[in-house]
Write a protein that binds this DNA or RNA. Structure first.
Lengths: 235, 235
DNA sequence: TCAAAAGTGTTGTCGCTACACCCATGC
DNA sequence: GCATGGGTGTAGCGACAACACTTTTGA
């Protein structure tokens, strides 16, 4: 026996929802689609699953092709399979979301794809069901970040607590008490205080911290309850 | 333009991890595979995605074909795409997990598939990567049930708090203080007390409760924190 | 009357929010 | 010295785990 008979085969794609944080705003990396149809319209970066690669490999390949980055935090989100989601022919899409340190990739935007970082609250129209994918990704990111120390992936290796707070406030579209926030974050003991301060944003300056990689990996699955009143914030 | 060119198409399947609870044990509904290869070996129920159906439709079709049930709680879990996961040819599988009230479907096990309810801790060897799917499903169920009132889906319309507790204890493979458990559950205000008692398990008898469907739907996304020390329990 | 499960009451602890207040520095 | 963020101290409240104790009923 060599193949299953009487069943229909279809294309499979991976699409990447790529989040970045520039210190102020949360952004998504979008491209202008190079293929017909909808050529030139805004789209998530994606690609077809090749014959000998796994889904994870495909997602990483697609991300690397656009950004040049490897070893980025990525997570499989959801499969989208409406029969008519792509008007050309049936394409099943597996969506991944990625969190990248925008400073590692801000300038050298591949001109090949006309990629741009777009403010998450000012997204253009997107092709196919990509808008829905983005909405699901935002929701999942909020959900996950309420419980797990995932947002560090968006920051550079050295960062300050106020920077981290701005990031969390952006994700949850709210404000937190800075005094309680810093205490809560420090109480996780995931951060290692550095000697230097960042004086860009205040006269006193805020100490830099680095992530304790070992503890981060060990405690990743723990429920950390970063966010006050998660019930209310998560819709 | 009618099709994308130069890309490879493949089969897509859905596989269902079907959980049930018989009042004492948590079980999985497995079948004995009817197709070659691995014919006769234990497997999850699955089926190929048809040309004009969505993933959800396919999952529901597969579930109905085996159990006759519709409107069952189902959730998309994860896509599995290792190139060689099926030795016959490349098949991408989207796994769904389902929670069903075992009493609605215990006797009329379809002889067509040689289906059986198998104790979750005594699973046989499974074909392909189905073992991994089951493990992921267990983990996701634990995770989700720690925060959301999802396990009611496994119980009949009327149930007692001690029954619910046995279910939770089975899921988390631990024991809870019955006094605190009942208070915690009742504090959610999701349950409506009935007049009758279940006297099968004690002389005093335990009151039956029904789920307040309206509140259940409204509060489903809230973080309910059903479980003490979720950190420690979830691995 | 006693065994056994169901369920209520109570207490101490812990973690959280809210907010007063101090700190370091550039101007 | 004063404005501006950064950060610590503290008090009150609420949630929760632990566990004593009462209730109900069959045998």
């Amino acid at each position: 026996m060599t193949r299953y008979t009487g069943e229909s085969r279809m294309l499979v794609a991976v699409d990447c929802i790529i989040f970045g944080f520039d210190g102020t705003d949360i952004k998504l990396l979008l491209i202008q689609r190079g293929l017909k149809p909808e050529k030139g319209k805004w789209s998530l970066m994606g690609g077809f699953l090749q014959e000998n690669e796994s889904l994870e490999q495909a997602a990483n390949r697609v991300l690397k092709k656009l950004t040049g980055l490897e070893g980025v935090y990525m997570e499989q989100m959801k499969a989208y399979g409406e029969p008519l989601r792509d008007p050309v022919e049936r394409v099943l899409s597996i969506a991944y979301f990625a969190l990248i340190d925008i400073h590692q990739y801000e300038k050298q935007l591949s001109t090949e794809y006309h990629a741009e970082w777009v403010h998450i609250k000012k997204l253009p129209e997107l092709i196919f069901d990509h808008k829905k994918m983005v909405e699901n990704a935002k929701k999942q990111l909020r959900y996950k970040a309420a419980l797990h120390p995932i947002l560090f992936e968006l920051l550079p290796a050295k960062f300050t607590i106020p920077q981290l707070q701005i990031l969390y406030e952006g994700i949850y579209d709210t404000t937190f008490d800075n005094r309680n926030f810093s205490r809560k974050v420090l109480s996780t003991e995931l951060l290692i205080k550095q000697k230097e301060k960042d004086k860009a944003n205040s006269k006193k300056g805020a100490f830099y911290y680095k992530l304790d990689k070992r503890k981060y990996k060990a405690n990743f699955q723990a429920f950390l309850n970063f966010i006050p009143n998660p019930d209310k914030l998560l819709l």
